[in-house]
């Protein structure tokens, strides 16, 4: 058993009690379907902030959720890993992933992001963007461990997009020891096309 599971059991139980229809809405993003009547984020004081340059497919409120998730997934303080705040992680999510989605799928994703934020109210009494670091980690782990398929699917998809965007940025590699591209660095010559076969 994972060492964190006892800590999140209570949260998991409360999340699993949420209305299944809400989770089905969440699944729309994960399976790429169009969901009708998706909720949108209601502007709040806590979410009122500007979207930085390079973000074209997130509203300021959606950006706040992604930003909070990025910090929850990658708390690099005290580690050797590069602080995600110093990197264009969410610009990469926006440009490399969101920009490529067909409009109906992007709308589904936006609904998923909204619900991801709102669903934290049931177990914590406040939306995801207002959770402490510890609460945010508990919430994410609870979704990951949930018996509800859409809850797992939603969290997994959001996490995948965020951490993949992080590791796609070359400055993140050095602390892991990974050297990046080598062919030019090693002076390897391109071998060219093979000659015609004799067989």
């Amino acid at each position: 058993m994972n060492a964190r599971e006892p800590d999140i059991r209570n949260v998991t139980q409360r999340i699993d009690k949420l209305d299944r229809r809400d989770f089905l809405r969440m699944s729309s993003m994960a399976v790429g379907m169009v969901a009708a009547g998706l909720s949108s984020l209601a502007p709040t004081a806590a979410l009122a902030q500007q979207v930085p340059d390079g973000i074209a497919h997130m509203t300021p409120d959606e950006y706040a959720v992604w930003h909070r998730l990025m910090l929850a997934l990658l708390p690099t303080e005290g580690s050797t890993l590069v602080d995600p705040e110093t990197l264009p992680v969410l610009q990469t999510v926006d440009g490399a992933f969101l920009a490529t989605l067909p409009p109906p799928v992007l709308e589904g994703l936006k609904g998923g992001v909204a619900y991801f934020n709102e669903a934290a109210v049931e177990p914590f009494g406040k939306p995801f963007v207002d959770l402490t670091n510890e609460e945010a980690a508990q919430y994410c782990d609870a979704l990951a461990a949930s018996e509800e398929v859409p809850a797992r699917a939603l969290f997994t998809a959001l996490k995948f997009l965020t951490v993949t965007a992080y590791w796609a940025i070359p400055p993140t590699w050095a602390p892991t020891g990974f050297q990046g591209p080598v062919t030019e660095a090693w002076g390897i010559e391109l071998q060219g096309n093979a000659p015609l076969p004799t067989a």
Binding site: A3, A144, K159, F160, G177
Partner: peptide
């Protein structure tokens, strides 16, 4: 596998457990 592949395949726990694992990628 490069970090961009391997970095999303494991979730030992959100936050510090994940950071700790990826610090030991080598």
């Amino acid at each position: 596998e490069q970090p961009v592949f391997a970095g999303s395949s494991q979730n030992p726990g959100t936050g510090k457990p994940y950071v700790n694992l990826m610090e030991k990628y080598a």
